[in-house]
Structure formats: C-alpha cells, structure tokens
C-alpha cells in the first residue's frame, strides 16, 4: 500500500509540475499592457502611398490621431462603403471624383469644413457632403521627343492621320480619368452640347486604331516611354512625369478643359466622427493644400494657394464646365455608346 501511495504521489507531482510550467509560461506571456488612448481613424483611399503617406504622417502628429489606411480602386472602395453602411468600418473616403461619388451622396455625412470660405467658388461644397480637396483637370500629355513639329494644341489635332495608332487612351469603363476625358471631349467638341460631340468620338475611335488601354497608368507611362506620341490623361500624373524629367509636355486643350475635383467624404454614421472632421479640416487647410501643390502635383481648391510650380494658372486656360455625366444613368448610357462606337467602327 505504501508503494501505491508513492506512485500516486509521483504521478501527482508530475502533473503538477507540467501544469505549473504551462501556467508559468502563459503568465510570462501576459504582462503589463501599454496604455493606448489614441483615437483611430480609418481611411479608404484610391490614392497611391506616395500621395497619402506624407499627408497622413503629418495629420497623425498634428491631430494626435492614428490613421489606418485601406488602399484600393475608387469603385471598389465605394462598393465597400455601400456594403458597410449598416455598420461602417470606415470614417473617411478620401479621393474619388466628385462626379463619381455624387450618385452615392446619401452614403456620406454632411459636414462643412472650417476652410469652406477659403475655397474657390467652383469648389464650394454645394451638396453638403462632398468636400472638394484637389482639382484634377484633364490634359493631353505629349512626348516631346516624338512629336516633332506636329502641332498638338487640342482635341481637334488628335484626328491628324499622322497620329493614327499613336494616341494612348484608356477604356473609360475601366479608368475614371479616361471617363473624364470622354466627358471633356463631348462638351468641348459639342460646343457645350454633349450630343454634338459624338461625331468627334467616332472620328477619334477611328484614329485610335482599335487600341484602348486597360488603365490610366498605361497612358502616361506609355507616352513617357515613347510608345505613344500623345495620351489623354490627367494633370497630376502628367505633372509627376514632367517634374521627374521625362520628355513630356502638358497640353491644355484649346477647345476647353474640364476640371473635375477630387473630394474627401465623411461616411455617414462614422465611428470616429470627431477625428474624421479633423481630417477634413486638415486636408483642406492651408498647410496641407500648399504641401499638395508644392510636392504632390495637384492643384489646390483654395483661393490662397497657387497652382503647382510650372503649371499655368487656371485663369489662363479655357475652362468649361459639364453639368451632365455625373449621374449613374448617363454614365452607363455614355459608356455603352462609346463601346458601341468603338467596337462597331472596328468591326
């Protein structure tokens, strides 16, 4: 019986030791917790990291807010906001053309930034929930090495048969900047009436030689690399390449330039509303706007911030405005029409 007891004791000791070792290691794992009371802000943005990082970096330190950024295409991010509207996982959608967001304005909360009175008149937040933060005009990007002495000053010049197959344009169904170009063409070539612009589109489609690119990056990259002589793109990208020293030149269409602002939108029922408001104020503030104009190649929406260095002031350009094309129905209709023309001509 003594033997029996000893055996039980040994067993008990073994189990106890094992248990204590396990417990001890968990105890060790679970030590002091860092106090963390910083508010969080979740931002969805289609902008590249080069654009967002310096701005968010500064915002975090200025506002004392920790930002979590989710990157993606505008359409996808908008879709996520739409899906999450019952329980928003995001506070701010930062980026996306106002024309593209407008049909979904109901997803976003009304907020008038403290900088509203410093905004240029055309960039006032008329809708209440669509704060503009940068201005991105459509432009043509010309490769200076290839263009020679051909005259490229506007859309009309793109119909030059010598440019046949040497024009870069992205599929407007895939690229928002290309869609902006489509609107710009219709209004500029239709002299204010988009219906009259479709003739030009037909001619252009002919001159594109059936070649539509898949993304806006293929356009400016293609021109900079000399694959194309001219490309239909947007000012920021064009300026980035120009400043980087690529053999490119920006051409503002003499027929007229439509400038579609990018916006920053607070999501309705955002969990961190105060931080979201701070962010909108920050990004429309003088510091951030100047930084953007100086370093990030975009035009400011503020009256008191000059155009980026090397860009013409908007006052010197032929600016036109579009009042259609920003509803989903028209967008669908125009895209289908474009597709028909393009493929129909081709076929």
């Amino acid at each position: 019986m003594g033997n029996e007891k000893r055996w039980r004791l040994v067993l008990l000791l073994l189990v106890l030791t094992a248990g204590m070792v396990v417990l001890g290691s968990w105890q060790w794992l679970d030590r002091e917790e860092m106090a963390d009371d910083l508010p969080d802000l979740v931002v969805y943005s289609p902008h590249p990291a080069e654009f967002t990082q310096p701005l968010l970096d500064e915002f975090e330190k200025e506002a004392g807010v920790r930002v979590r950024l989710v990157n993606g295409g505008t359409g996808k991010l908008l879709q996520r906001v739409r899906e999450e509207q019952e329980n928003p996982q995001v506070d701010v959608l930062w980026g996306g053309a106002v024309s593209m967001i407008k049909p979904d304005a109901g997803l976003f909360a009304e907020y008038e930034t403290v900088n509203e009175n410093m905004m240029r008149p055309e960039f006032k937040n008329r809708e209440g929930c669509l704060t503009r933060f940068t201005d991105v005009p459509s432009v043509l990007l010309v490769n200076t090495d290839l263009v020679g002495d051909w005259k490229i000053e506007g859309y009309e010049d793109l119909l030059d048969p010598r440019l046949h197959g040497k024009i870069a344009m992205a599929d407007p169904a895939l690229s928002s900047s290309s869609y902006e170009q489509l609107i710009n063409m219709l209004y500029a070539m239709g002299k204010g009436n988009p219906e009259d612009g479709w003739d030009y589109i037909r001619s252009l489609a002919d001159n594109l030689d059936g070649n539509l690119l898949e993304s806006s990056a293929d356009v400016y990259d293609g021109v900079a690399r000399g694959r194309y002589v001219v490309g239909c793109t947007f000012e920021e990208a064009a300026l980035t390449y120009q400043r980087a020293g690529a053999p490119v030149r920006i051409v503002y269409m003499k027929e007229g330039v439509i400038s579609e602002p990018d916006g920053v939108y607070i999501v309705r029922n955002a969990k961190h509303l105060a931080a979201a408001k701070k962010f909108v104020d920050f990004i429309t503030g003088h510091g951030a706007q100047s930084f953007i104009a100086r370093n990030l190649h975009r035009r400011s929406v503020r009256k008191d911030v000059a155009a980026p260095e090397g860009l013409q002031e908007k006052d010197n350009l032929v600016m036109i405005s579009a009042d259609a094309g920003d509803t989903e129905e028209i967008r669908q209709e125009w895209l289908e029409r474009f597709c028909r023309i393009f493929h129909g001509e081709k076929g």
Partner: peptide, 16 residues
C-alpha cells in the same frame, strides 16, 4: 514596407 505596423502588433504585451 508600407510604413505602418499592422494593428495586431500594436501592444507591448508579450504575445503570439
């Protein structure tokens, strides 16, 4: 390399 540590790492607790 994006510049931010994923949120799951943000604590000074020893943890998996």
């Amino acid at each position: 390399a994006e510049g931010k540590i994923p949120a799951v790492f943000r604590h000074n607790r020893a943890s998996l």
